[in-house]
Nucleic acid binder design. Structure first.
Length: 369
DNA sequence: GAGGCGTGGGC
DNA sequence: TGCCCAAGCCT
């Protein structure tokens, strides 16, 4: 059934409506100041925005608090060893963010005397800060009007205008509509940026949107047509390939230390710590010989225990199935980027999630023996 | 500009 | 259970 054409609501009215809603309903988050209050230090805004890239609020909160405690000011973070930053980030994912975070802190110290520039274009030049984050920091930390268009904002606007084509085909329009709203007022730039995202995060959610509570329900094309939950149209789904590998949990003869190494700085899990492993290929290794040739050169091992359960881990673009071989090494001249680490300290290293799974599995089997 | 890049939680 | 997803950036 066709819906009668709605009256266009002026951007300034939408803006005010949303800010009023935000004043009443915004969440209390560790990196957020209350509505109309003095903005948080740019360091905290930036730190939270980097962590929140493609990551849920729930996952971020403990990491944000840990970082702030460890490195209260940007000069502390800039002065930290990269390894310590990676260790603190371990488990949060998208590790290029941690490398860029550290680089960015050092760049702000060197180029801006420790103060983030209060300028969107200048922020954009810093490592790890793209169009979204530059606008978010400019508006939230400095109250500069700027359109921070993230996934939430795109979804909200796509529904409001009833867009029936994929988001990627509407980037220009989405940005332009966001700007209309942002520049429809001259104050509270930071609150407005957050209000738009807050709407997407709490009411205008991907699934089960709470249109009945939405301050914009009167003008929302998708809602008025009863199709809010069906928008935006999802991109075609692709099949995730499976990759296979074998990973070595190698103990010293005294069983007190294990062999760890560092991954190259670029690419998957760049710069993070790992257990030695075969490459992760689309077919499993065929023979024991195929597997053993990937053992660290300096290590000789007599006996292996193959863990009964494979580790299954879902990366963004492939699924990994890892066999875990546990063994005992008899040679110990660790080279660069490799080391024997006391078992009690393994968990403090920069182990990505998949390697934390491997370690837990190894400890489990150890306990059972 | 399309693909690489993590992880844990919700349904 | 498996699938989908969350405040993007970089190359």
């Amino acid at each position: 059934m066709p819906v009668p054409p709605r009256k266009t609501i002026p951007a300034a009215v939408l803006r005010k409506t949303l800010l009023d809603w935000y004043d009443a309903h915004c969440r209390d988050l560790p990196w957020r100041s209350p509505p109309s209050a003095t903005p948080p230090p740019a360091y905290r805004v930036w730190l939270s925005e980097i962590m929140l890239q493609q990551t849920t609020v729930t996952a971020v909160i403990p990491y944000f608090l840990k970082f702030l405690k460890k490195w209260p000011q940007i000069e502390n973070l800039a002065a930290a060893d990269r390894e310590d930053v990676l260790e603190a980030w371990a488990g949060l994912g998208y590790y290029a963010r941690a490398r860029n975070l550290h680089q960015c802190a050092r760049a702000v110290m060197e180029n801006y005397g420790g103060d983030f520039p209060a300028d969107e274009a200048e922020l954009r030049k810093l490592p790890g800060i793209g169009p979204y984050t530059a606008a978010a920091v400019a508006s939230i930390a400095f109250d500069i009007p700027a359109a921070a268009v993230d996934g939430n904002v795109e979804r909200v606007i796509a529904r409001y205008h009833g867009l029936k084509t994929p988001l990627r085909d509407n980037k220009k329009f989405l940005k332009s509509e966001a700007e209309k709203l942002v520049f429809a007022g001259k104050t509270r730039a930071g609150d407005f940026t957050q209000s738009l995202m807050e709407l997407g995060a709490t009411l205008c959610t991907p699934k089960n949107p709470q249109c009945g509570r939405c301050p914009w329900q009167g003008g929302c094309v998708a809602h008025l047509n009863g199709i809010a939950a069906d928008l935006p149209v999802p991109p075609p789904k692709t099949v995730k390939p499976v990759r296979y590998g074998t990973v070595f949990v190698l103990f010293c003869p005294d069983k007190k230390s294990v062999f760890l190494q560092k991954r190259p700085d670029d690419g998957l899990l760049g710069g993070m710590t790992e257990f030695p492993s075969t490459p992760w290929n689309e077919t499993p290794p065929k023979t024991g010989k195929d597997i053993k040739k990937y053992l660290p050169q300096t290590v000789k091992t007599a006996e292996w225990q193959v863990l009964p359960e494979e580790i299954v881990h879902h990366f963004t673009h492939f699924t990994l199935r890892l066999s875990v071989w546990q063994g005992c090494g008899t040679e110990t001249s660790a080279e660069n980027r490799q080391s024997w680490v006391p078992a009690a300290e393994v968990e403090q290293r920069a182990l990505p999630g998949v390697m934390q799974k491997v370690w837990r599995a190894a400890l489990e089997s150890f306990k059972r023996k």
